[in-house]
Design a protein around this nucleic acid. Structure first.
Lengths: 213, 213
DNA sequence: GTCTATACTTCGATAGAC
DNA sequence: GTCTATCGAAGTATAGAC
């Protein structure tokens, strides 16, 4: 029975996520990823053919997880407005669990998806896809007003990702008294986005239901 | 009377904006910036001390312009909901004019502001600052409901920046039939965000005014 | 599977002539 | 102000022993 390797590829992916998040694809150093994961460079290249392979593998892992969990909400029999609240909270949770991943998303968007291959693109597309099904179902049920599901996706996801990623800059601005320092509260912002989305999707003339939490 | 230099520092800044947007700070190549601007590397280093100096200078230029133009809207005597519509449209316009800048913003946020010095941070902070004054004035006038102005800023700015930056990826997904290909319409998305913000800021019980355009 | 040592390349920055 | 040539540092990737 073979002994479990001391450092698993999984741990290398974790270290790489952090490095790519902090420095970007070009700025990431394979040396540093290896050191952070507790392996040497040769070991890393043994498990992953190249820096790019490593990068794509961690993207696929994160997109798969996110897509599956959103789809689970879509498949639940909760009413549309509750699914909406839940999916907003899920995004914040995902970021809490994978603290370094959203920065990678931001960079990849900025780069125009330069490092994405077809398989990774497919997994990425499943995320707005699953969200879109929630919105479409709400519209079909007459609970949501008729909006473009992809527009709704961007209106929901972008503020969450942006606000949470910008935490270090907001902290810096607060410390230097360039902005009010009291708005670091992530939970408050998540509630704000939930309230926004209820208003955005409420049918004309209705104020939309209050929080379901 | 001295002859105007063939290539002005201004042109170098433009070339650098594009290069930094496409490749990020670490991925940007000084050689390429020089070539794109039509100067040689030594000339570039003559005008700008280092890669980092160049980078900060272009950030300051863009933040100053954006901050000033938002403040101009805030200083106008247009009613709050119209100022809101205008500032959303302004963001889209700014991106149209400085097509490559938002990608730099996205990356800088992802990086936690690692390349920003105090002066640049100050100019950056003026952007949400000016927007916040529009919101605060609307709240004081009883036209907007009471929301955190910075929350409102992120709710407005993030979708615009994200959606426009993601255009290449959306195009790619459409071409590969991984997503519906028909949603490239920037103008439609801007209208969507304007409508969203009116709903977000409308006082409780009111549906908020219709479009003012 | 694990490691050390290193080959090969690229890049930021500068020297120094004009 | 403008240019050519180049230095030195740092990076990805691999060779080859164990």
């Amino acid at each position: 029975m073979p002994r479990r390797p001391r450092v698993t590829p999984e741990q290398i992916l974790d270290a790489a996520t952090r490095e790519f998040a902090e420095r970007g694809f070009a700025g990431a150093r394979v040396d540093r990823i290896a050191r952070r994961a507790g392996v040497n460079k040769a070991m890393l290249y043994y498990h992953f053919r190249s820096k790019q392979t490593l990068y794509r593998r961690l993207l696929r892992r994160a997109f798969s997880q996110a897509g599956a969990r959103i789809q689970r909400i879509a498949d639940s029999d909760a009413p549309p407005f509750e699914q909406l609240d839940r999916v907003v909270a899920l995004f914040a949770d995902l970021i809490g669990e994978q603290r370094f991943f959203p920065a990678i998303m931001l960079r990849e968007v900025a780069e125009g998806g330069a490092h994405l291959d077809v398989e990774t693109l497919g997994l990425l597309a499943a995320v707005p896809g699953a969200f879109g099904r929630i919105v479409a179902r709400g519209i079909a049920a007459g609970e949501f007003r008729d909006v473009n599901p992809l527009f709704a996706y961007f209106s929901m996801m972008s503020p969450i990702v942006f606000f949470l990623c910008a935490a270090p800059i907001r902290r810096e601005l607060g410390a230097r008294r360039l902005a009010s320092p009291d708005i670091r509260n992530v939970a408050a912002f998540v509630s704000h986005v939930q309230a926004n989305m209820r208003r955005v999707l409420a049918p004309d003339g209705a104020a939309g239901p209050r929080s379901t939490t």
